[in-house]
């Protein structure tokens, strides 16, 4: 039964993506919508990304310094570990998990409400490909903005780590700087960016699928929003496993 439901949903998702990722009727209108979505999904998420990354960067640095570092380890190890965790996992995967909650529920509830209030029917009656008009700019907007959010997240995490050095006095700034610069591999940064592009597609397309296909009223919109967050989070976790193996 579960497999049947999964296959039916997968089929519907692929059909919807086929419609959504088709040529726009009017590039100008889609372009305007694309800019709007970049602002709504990307720019409006910068605040939460900066805030969470700052504290996580600070906490990782403190944890490593106080609980992991010992006399036989070099002094720069806290900075080194903070950088690697931020670059390899937090700023791409964990940050996208957090965004799936914020952005995913936003997309699902917006499209679900448009469905229940017949706004999607109105688009269809006008002869507009409603799937493309509503979903394509969201997917493109989030995929465009996500590398920027990864950069902001990493930078904010490092600033958080420096805050523990300058304000908390947990580690000396020079040890932290030495750790952050130690054996830097640029590919790790690009790995995070590449992973985040996949995750951005998952968040936007899966959430759009749940919102677009709502049937019923406000209860179903709420359920779709929850399903969107749960499903996109699960898919991010699974694909993180494969992408990490593939890209490492």
């Amino acid at each position: 039964m579960f497999i049947h439901t999964f296959l039916v949903s997968l089929g519907r998702y692929l059909q919807l993506m086929g419609r959504a990722l088709s040529k726009p009727e009017r590039w100008r209108v889609y372009g305007r919508q694309y800019v709007t979505e970049m602002a709504a999904l990307g720019v409006d998420s910068i605040g939460i990304v900066l805030l969470i990354s700052f504290f996580i960067g600070a906490v990782i640095c403190i944890q490593i310094k106080l609980n992991i570092q010992s006399a036989w380890m070099p002094l720069w190890v806290s900075g080194y570990v903070t950088r690697e965790i931020m670059l390899l996992e937090f700023s791409s995967s964990i940050m996208c998990l957090i965004l799936s909650g914020k952005v995913g529920s936003n997309i699902a509830s917006e499209l679900g409400t448009m469905r229940t209030t017949q706004q999607i029917d109105a688009l269809e009656i006008m002869g507009v490909n409603s799937a493309a008009y509503l979903i394509l700019p969201k997917v493109a907007g989030l995929v465009t903005m996500i590398p920027l959010l990864v950069v902001f997240s990493t930078a904010s995490g490092i600033i958080g780590a420096y805050a523990t050095a300058y304000i908390g006095g947990i580690i000396t700034p020079s040890d932290l700087t030495a750790g952050l610069q130690h054996d830097f591999t640029a590919w790790f940064f690009w790995m995070g960016v590449i992973k985040s592009l996949f995750f951005a597609f998952i968040i936007s397309s899966v959430s759009a699928f749940f919102g677009y296909t709502v049937q019923g009223g406000s209860v179903e919109v709420g359920r779709a929003s929850t399903n969107a967050v749960v499903s996109s989070s699960m898919l991010i976790l699974f694909s993180d496993l494969f992408l990490t193996k593939l890209l490492s």
């Binding site: 209030t117 017949q118 009656i125 006008m126 002869g127």
Partner: peptide
């Protein structure tokens, strides 16, 4: 459909 106009119950 470009020849159609529709007024929905909820205005939409």
């Amino acid at each position: 459909r470009r020849e159609m106009g529709m007024i929905f119950q909820s205005a939409a």
